[in-house]
Structure formats: C-alpha cells, structure tokens
Amino acid sequence: MSDTPIISVAGLHKSFGKLEVLRGLSFEVQRGEVLAIIGPSGSGKSTLLRCLNFLEEYQAGEVRFDDQLVGYRRSGGGKLKLDSENNTRRIRARMGMVFQSFNLFPHKTVLENVMEGPLVVQRVSRNEAEQRGRTLLQRVGLIDKIGAYPAQLSGGQQQRAAIARALAMQPDAMLFDEPTSALDPELVGEVLEVMQSLAAEGMTMVVVTHEMGFARQVADRVMVMDRGEIIELAPPAQVFGAPKSPRTAEFLRRVLH
C-alpha cells in the first residue's frame, strides 16, 4: 500500500468560463514526499492545488487521493458524475490546507480555531480536541496565545495557528497555498521553520510557493508550471542547477535576481 502514490493526477483540465487555466496535467505525489510547485503568477498553481481537494471543480481528467477519485464518481455507464457532498467531505478531511491569507475564523480564539475541525467534523470529545489543540499549539510556538483572537496576532502567528488547525485533523497530506506570500519578510522564517519540521517528520506536502530557498532545500521534487502546464518536474538540484526547459531557466533567472 505504501508504494501507491497518495495523490495522482491524470489529464487534469480546468477552465473558468472560456479561460483554460489547467491544460492536461499529470503527475503523482508519493507518501512522505514534499512537492514544491513554482512558476510565474497566473500559471495555475493555486488552481491546481484547489483541485486536489475539490475546492475547485475540474472539467476533465482525474484527481485521485489514496486511490479514490476526488469529487466525482463513475455512474453505471462509466460516465463521471459529481460525487455526494459526504464523500467529498471525507476526502477533504484527510487533506489539511493552509491558505495565503490564513483564513482563521475571526470569531473564535486560537484554541477554538484548532479544535473546530476535530469537534465538528470528526466528532471527538471536547477533551480530546483540546488535548490535540494544546499539543499542536505548543509545537508551533503559540501556547501562550491560546485565548487570543486572530486579529490580535501577527501574520506569522496567524499562519502558524492555521497550520495547527489543519494538523488537528491528523491529515494524511498537507496542501500549502503560498503560505508566506502575505507575510512581512521578517515573519516568513518562523512559518517556514514549522513547515520544515513537518517535512522532516515525513508529512506528505504539496507546497505552492515563491520561496525558492524552501523549494531548493526542503522539497524532494520541484514542479515548474507555466500557462497551465507542467514544464518541468524534477528534484531541486536538477531544476535549479540544470533546467531542461528554457522557460524554467527564464523564470528562475527572473526570480533569483
């Protein structure tokens, strides 16, 4: 079982109206792998990530999570139909997601934010949820902010709380959508540190990022996207050291200087 990929994408197409954002992507993510997705803005990175847990519907191709089709099911005739909300929810609950703009629940304290998923979705006891919450907040260095509301935290603290909230569901994989792009430069480090420690523990991670340092040092493989296509997918040493595609080289030249 551990040799089957946790996420596999085949021939994925996604359009917003007439605008084709993803043009037939195929790739796999192995268990415990850290995949960084980089590329110019507008290349479809975030949309791809949002298709993985079906926050965006896709029009063609397949996304599979742990060998289960995400968002659709095959009807009798082999045609794809929208899956029931319950099935989609069950799959989403197994993937944690961290957003660029944190998206903490502003009417709940930090601890309540982290307890929300386990309490409401997994229906664990209050004690258990609080236990998990405290452990995770300790881990991301926010144990002293447990009773604070999100508006009282810095961006870096909010993002660390958001990571703890996603981890509280004990997910099999984590999706990061430009987690440091909305942060002041001096706060980027504390968030990357938490992500790095997660990676070291063997968490499966898909990270859309502009942090080339993170992609180079932490990722097992780097995917370069441009105009809705994968133009390169290889270990960081190769992508950064000897890019095959001239578009990759061009992109790296622009972001690294």
């Binding site: 926050l55 989403r92 944690g96 929300e116 996603a166």
Partner: peptide, 10 residues
C-alpha cells in the same frame, strides 16, 4: 474555503 477544507458540509 477554510471550513470546507476541514471537511465541513454546507
């Protein structure tokens, strides 16, 4: 988005 990503229903 955040609520859905945790697995919450509508």
């Amino acid at each position: 988005d955040a609520a859905k990503s945790l697995g919450m229903g509508y």
